[in-house]
């Protein structure tokens, strides 16, 4: 199988004098390296410059609210069942009278926790969710944690803020992590 057309056959023929002197070959090699010395470097200076990772990047989890600002999650438990790392746990509760503007369904998640040390960001919870409640946002990373008590993310850090709505409509979405304003929208 030929992968590239750059392969050369190795030969054991006796070297000519020019090859034995090494110098022409050394000069060639030096020319190649000095060419690379002056080339533009492809490095992206990571913490300062962040590149767009694509519309299907799986980052920070978000528990969506619907158009009226009600939590979509109904605590069915399909996400924690789908989770291969068993990172998700929840406690369900029944919606009381007068809470209709808070929770869309009659049952809601009183506690919803994701253990970020366990999570492998596979996105299966997002696929399993029948209510389109849990998403992995494409524009935000889970920040680095240094203490064990920072690891478990509860509803306070997962539920979508009304002033920071997350939408991902199509594959043409573009929002780099450095510009979070692009992903904010009023839907």
């Amino acid at each position: 199988m030929q992968l590239t057309n750059r392969s050369k056959q190795v030969s054991n023929k006796e070297m000519t004098l020019a090859e034995k002197m090494y110098l022409p070959a050394i000069a060639q090699g030096l020319a190649i390296t000095i060419k690379h010395f002056f080339q533009k470097k492809p490095t992206i200076q990571y913490p300062e410059v962040k590149r767009y990772l694509g519309p299907i990047f799986r980052g920070h989890h978000v528990l969506k609210r619907d158009e009226e600002g009600r939590e979509r999650c109904t605590a069915c438990g399909l996400c924690s069942l789908a989770c291969p790392a068993e990172a998700i746990s929840m406690v369900a509760a029944e919606r009381k009278k007068g809470e209709e503007n808070l929770y869309r369904e009659e049952k809601y998640a009183a506690v919803y926790e994701i253990n970020m040390l366990r999570c492998i960001f596979c996105g299966l919870c997002e696929e399993a969710c029948p209510k389109q409640a849990v998403y992995l946002r494409h524009d935000r990373f889970v920040p680095v944690f240094t203490e064990r008590d920072q690891v478990i993310y509860g509803k306070d850090r997962l539920v979508e803020q009304l002033d920071d709505r997350y939408v991902r409509t199509g594959s043409e979405v573009r929002a780099t992590p450095t510009e979070p304003t692009l992903s904010r929208s009023a839907t």
Binding site: I34, H36, F37, K41, P42, T43
Partner: peptide, 9 residues
């Protein structure tokens, strides 16, 4: 120098 010759910084 090593970095620059290997297209790094």
């Amino acid at each position: 120098v090593a970095g620059f010759m290997q297209d790094r910084l």
